[in-house]
């Protein structure tokens, strides 16, 4: 298993967000986690890179137990994991070039020329050639997301975590981002975890889909298995029918 979350519990104050969340993600696969807004999808994802610590349970990435790693070991692990944030989280005060090159500057032995070449290559990969000197405020929402993706892939990570990569984008830009996610897996062999509530997108890009409901995984399967399931909660979600969700709860 390349990423494994075992019986993870997480609460913020009185609010229990994850209540026994368990999930395995195979190497080289793209798994989408679906679920309504505010159910804890991003919370689960942040556990994978140690941005959040579980109250109980374990998170394993690449054979390493994230919860017990020292700070330095955690930074070492993060070099293998790219994270695409929901709103890109680009550094406002830096150009796109500097944003994309940030992670590369932390790798020993990388010269400015090598960093510059890699930044150019990543911007080309996400179709942002010529945008390197712009600041994030000068980019559209879709361009910002692509720049965020370029920053995440710059260090050639083994794992890519996408937090709602297509939310708020027009259908064409959504398709472009989806294609990029598929290319990451097919061309670079990257293992991906995608948080989304866009079902069309999830069906297009995923090898497997897991639904988070009530703090834990309610259903997991291939896109075809998800389409054919009789689970009322999953059906209610993918068909956009709140009546089914209410009956189930």
């Amino acid at each position: 298993m390349s990423i494994r979350l075992i019986d993870v519990h997480k609460a913020f104050g009185e609010k229990q967000v994850l209540t026994g969340f368990s999930l395995d993600i195979e190497e080289g696969q793209t798994l989408s986690i679906i679920g309504g807004s505010g159910v804890g999808k991003s919370v689960a994802l942040k556990h994978v890179v140690g941005l959040l610590e579980p109250d109980s349970g374990e998170v394993w990435v690449d054979g390493r137990n994230v919860s017990v790693l020292s700070q330095e070991e955690l930074y070492e692990l993060r070099r293998d994991v790219g994270y695409v944030f929901q709103f890109a989280a680009l550094f406002d005060s830096m150009t796109v070039n500097d944003n994309v090159g940030m992670g590369l500057k932390r790798i020993p032995g990388w010269t400015p020329a090598r960093i510059s070449a890699r930044v150019e290559e990543c911007l080309h990969l996400v179709d942002l050639d010529g945008y390197g000197d712009r600041f994030p405020a000068e980019l559209s929402g879709g361009q910002r997301k692509r720049a965020g993706l370029a920053r995440a892939i710059a260090t050639e990570p083994k794992y890519l975590l996408y937090d709602e990569p297509t939310t708020g984008l027009d259908p064409v830009t959504t398709a472009v981002i989806d294609q990029l996610i598929v290319r990451m897996r097919s061309e670079l062999g990257v293992t991906g975890v995608v948080i989304t509530h866009d079902m069309d997108s999830a069906f297009r890009i995923s090898d497997r889909i897991a639904m988070l409901y009530d703090g834990r995984i309610r259903f997991e399967g291939t896109p075809d298995e998800v389409r054919g399931t009789q689970d009322r909660v999953v059906r209610g979600f993918i068909e956009g029918r709140p009546d089914l969700l209410e009956v189930a709860s």
């Binding site: 942040k46 890179v49 140690g50 941005l51 700070q71 930074y75 070492e76 993060r78 070099r79 994991v81 790219g82 994270y83 944030f85 929901q86 709103f87 989280a89 680009l90 550094f91 406002d92 940030m102 992670g103 932390r106 920053r151």
Partner: peptide
């Protein structure tokens, strides 16, 4: 504060910056 609420601080962490 702005960096915190726009997840730029988290982004620093994921890029291995303390």
């Amino acid at each position: 504060g702005t960096m915190r609420v726009t997840e730029q601080v988290d982004a620093l962490e994921t890029l291995a910056y303390d």
